[in-house]
Simulated scan of single mutants.
Amino acid sequence: MEIRIRKGGADDVPAILAMLDSAVAWLNGKGITDQWGTEPWSARPKAVRQVEETVLEGSPWIAEIDGVPAGTLTLTPHPGPHVARVEEPELYVRLLTIDGRFHGRGVGAALLAHAAEETRRQGLSLLRVDCFAGSEGRLVAYYESQGFTPTEPFTVGEWRGQVLERRV
């Protein structure tokens, strides 16, 4: 199984939404409903707009296995509106998601390694990401296993998040 990572674009928004929908179903199947809720992203107009805007302002990347979109992330020069900006130039990982059919195959690790390479290629040294901090911190621990260090926690309403950074 080879993971191929390609540059994405606006034409990939339907595939990105399909991966997000699959991830919601996968999470819900594991009993995790407080990360992304229970409703598919594609069924929520505000979420669809968020994906469209993030993809347009950033650089989307699509991981494929046998030509099938298996995961995605979009790199932007700043975080979303819920996270404080920093003084130095950075790349920020947004919309990282893995299609539920491809969990456990190293797709997320390959995308994060690609994000670190892209950060270096652009002459930057700071890569940041934020994630859901609930569910016993499993996602935070995953990012730590990928070389990230937690910096500051944040909340959006009842949703608890954690910002992490990686120096490259």
Rank of each mutant, 00 (worst) to 15 (best):
G31W: 15
W41M: 13
D21I: 05
I65R: 10
I3Y: 06
L139D: 02
I16L: 15
P45S: 08
T149I: 11
L126R: 15
V51F: 06
V55R: 02
K46I: 09
G134K: 07
A116M: 08
S42K: 08
E52V: 11
L139R: 06
P69C: 01
S125M: 08
A113P: 00
E53G: 04
C131Q: 05
G137N: 05
Q162F: 07
R138E: 12
G104F: 14
Q146E: 14
P77G: 01
D11P: 09
Y143A: 05
T149R: 15
G100M: 07
V48L: 04
F132T: 03
R94Q: 13
T72I: 00
L91Y: 05
L17V: 08
Y143N: 02
A25L: 11
V156P: 11
E52S: 01
V163H: 06
R128P: 01
G147K: 07
F154M: 07
Y92T: 10
D66Q: 13
E152Y: 06
P153G: 10
G100E: 02
D11F: 01
Q35Y: 09
A110Y: 13
I16W: 05
A63S: 12
I16N: 10
H78E: 10
A15G: 07
P89N: 08
A115Q: 09
V93R: 07
E2P: 13
E158Y: 10
W36T: 06
Q50D: 11
I65K: 02
P40Q: 13
W26I: 00
V168L: 09
E2Q: 08
A141M: 01
D21N: 12
W61K: 00
V83C: 04
S135A: 13
A70L: 04
E53H: 12
Q122I: 03
R44K: 15
I98F: 07
E152G: 09
E90W: 03
R4L: 04
Y143M: 05
T149A: 12
D130K: 07
P69Y: 03
A70Q: 05
A133L: 11
R105Y: 04
L75D: 12
R166M: 11
Y143C: 01
D130C: 12
I16M: 14
G71E: 06
E158Q: 12
R121P: 01
P60N: 08
L20M: 12
A15N: 09
E88F: 06
K7C: 01
P81Q: 07
A110K: 08
D130P: 06
V156A: 07
G80S: 07
I5V: 03
E57C: 05
L111P: 03
A18G: 03
